[in-house]
Simulated assay, not measured.
Amino acid sequence: MNASSGPAAYRELFYTSQDGLRLFSRDYGQRGGKHLPVICLPGLTRNSKDFETLATRISATRRVLCPDLRGRGRSQYCESWSEYTPQNEMLDVFDLMGAAGIHQAVFIGTSRGGIVTMLMAAQRPNAVRGAVLNDIGPEVSIDGLKRIASYAGVMEAPASWTEAAFKLRMMNERDFPTLTGEDWYEQARRTFAEEAGVPKIDYDGKIGLALRKGLEAANGALPAMWPQFKALGHVPALVIRGENSDILSADTVKRMEKEHAGLASVSIKDRGHVPFLDEPEAIGALDAFLERC
Rank of each mutant, 00 (worst) to 15 (best):
S4A: 13
G6V: 05
P7H: 13
Y10H: 13
E12I: 08
E12G: 13
L13A: 06
S17R: 05
S25Y: 03
R26T: 07
G29M: 10
G29L: 08
Q30A: 15
G33H: 05
K34G: 10
I39Y: 01
C40M: 08
G43D: 00
S48W: 00
D50H: 05
F51C: 02
T56I: 08
R57Q: 15
R63T: 11
R63H: 08
V64S: 06
V64Y: 02
P67T: 03
D68W: 00
D68P: 01
L69V: 12
R70S: 00
R74S: 05
R74D: 01
S75I: 03
C78W: 11
E79N: 04
W81K: 09
S82G: 09
E83V: 01
T85A: 06
P86N: 03
Q87E: 13
Q87W: 09
A99M: 10
A100I: 00
V106D: 11
V106P: 06
T110D: 01
T110H: 02
T117H: 07
M118K: 02
M120K: 10
M120E: 09
A122C: 07
Q123M: 08
R124L: 15
P125T: 06
P125F: 07
A127D: 07
A127F: 03
A127T: 10
A127H: 07
A131P: 02
A131N: 03
L133V: 12
I136Y: 11
I136S: 12
G144D: 02
L145Y: 09
K146T: 11
A149Y: 08
A152N: 01
A152T: 03
P158C: 05
T162Q: 15
E163M: 12
A164D: 07
A165C: 15
R169D: 10
M170E: 15
M171V: 09
N172G: 08
E173R: 15
D175M: 14
G181K: 14
E182Q: 14
E186N: 15
T191D: 09
E194Y: 13
E194Q: 14
V198R: 03
P199S: 14
D202S: 03
Y203M: 05
D204V: 02
G205L: 09
G205I: 10
I207R: 04
G208N: 00
E216W: 14
A217I: 13
N219L: 06
P223E: 04
A224P: 07
M225D: 12
M225R: 12
F229A: 15
L238C: 12
I240D: 03
D246C: 09
S249P: 15
T252M: 12
K254G: 10
E257G: 12
E259S: 13
H260D: 00
A261D: 11
V266L: 02
E281T: 04
I283K: 09
I283L: 13
G284L: 12
A285D: 13
C293Y: 04
C293Q: 08
